[in-house]
Design a protein around this nucleic acid. Sequence first.
DNA 1: GTCTATAACACGATAGAC
DNA 2: GTCTATCGTGTTATAGAC
Lengths: 243, 243
Amino acid sequence: MTASRSRQNIVPASGVQAPAGDTRERVLTAAMQVFAEHGFDGATLREITALAGANIAAVNYYFRSKDELIRHVLDVYVRPIMASRLEALDECERLAGERGPDLEAVIEALVLPMVYLSRDRRGGRALIRLLLQSRALPRDATRSFTHETFDPVLHRFVDAIGRAVPALSREAIFWRIDFAVGAMMQILTDSDSGSRRLATLSGGLCDTDDNAAIAAQLVAFIAGGFQAPSPGGQRPKRRPVRG
Amino acid sequence: MTASRSRQNIVPASGVQAPAGDTRERVLTAAMQVFAEHGFDGATLREITALAGANIAAVNYYFRSKDELIRHVLDVYVRPIMASRLEALDECERLAGERGPDLEAVIEALVLPMVYLSRDRRGGRALIRLLLQSRALPRDATRSFTHETFDPVLHRFVDAIGRAVPALSREAIFWRIDFAVGAMMQILTDSDSGSRRLATLSGGLCDTDDNAAIAAQLVAFIAGGFQAPSPGGQRPKRRPVRG
DNA sequence: GTCTATAACACGATAGAC
DNA sequence: GTCTATCGTGTTATAGAC
């Protein structure tokens, strides 16, 4: 092999399609797709603008730099999901009245918007890969974004779960909401056409393209997890472990 | 800003230290650290060999290419974890005898080796970031590796859980083992010095440096999840969702 | 607003001396 | 087994024409 960065080694995630709209919007949509496939670092402005049918100079015209483009992409796609989560949570709490909200309803408010919106929208599945990348390789742009965008929403969910399961300590709720998000991200990543790990692993038993199945299984698992007794007393002892 | 890829934007994960050993070993250790910080794509052989105190040509001498180097790095660090998991699972099943193994013991066999080994070893925390990257941005090298290395182990755990919780359908076990792994990866990523998301979010309530706490909370949550009734009958209906 | 052309630089790989 | 030097190709960013 001759020189060149080994980007051709990275397998596309999903059928990429040319975006529509004005130039700015086309660049945004194309950026989302290319970022998802090659990573923020591996994606090139050349490929993004080519997919958008725009000139490479357009990125510097509409956005200031590649980093600003990243921030805009995240914002455009994550904001509606957060809005939908909060809306669903509001409804939970309105229905609850005096007594605490229903645990499963709160979990659904957390999980369903991400499951459906991240997979229904055009190029939506790409979003999950973007968020996973933001965790695996945090940058200034992604770190500040997730902090500002996710944390206030998660705090509201922590409060709601506290009212739904009063026996659970606040510490345990924080741990478990992190676990819940991790479980959700894992399964949503899994259904990329590129990986399909679970579908393969299970010999086809699990249909990772079935949003309703994903949602049902996730909610059941997470609800079970939140209802588990706190480890409290004795922690699992550190077993001798081969190194 | 002038040209150049924006790698300086990526924030280091943890205190990087110069590796010891012979050249081959030093390159392997340095590669692990640099891959974890900058990603497989963003990492450069120049930085790796500089950290290893080796010449850039050493990579092509000891490993054939950057891709082969990636495969070797993953193998060296993941293999002991898989071995430890299987060893612990063997012990579970030996203790169980006729009746099914204890669910929590099986979960501990799955979780504890990753929690402790991925955080005890030198540069161990880097491994989690590598695995997360392998999911977020699968390459040929990482895809084949995870398939060959993780899948047989996971199958053994699926079988064991099936005996521990006979009421659970095989399909549900597959879904949930994926959720469990996701929850684990999420919390292990969180304790990078670079992110510390949960520690910040919880206002210090959760000590993400406390391996025993992580293990205890994880095992409790996952056990609760596996014991939850199958969603079976009616699935949560698709709520109207703002887009 | 959109384009071409190019500056300035980084990359992986490798040939060949020692 | 380790080094230097370099090739061929890629990148972002930008100046300046239209």
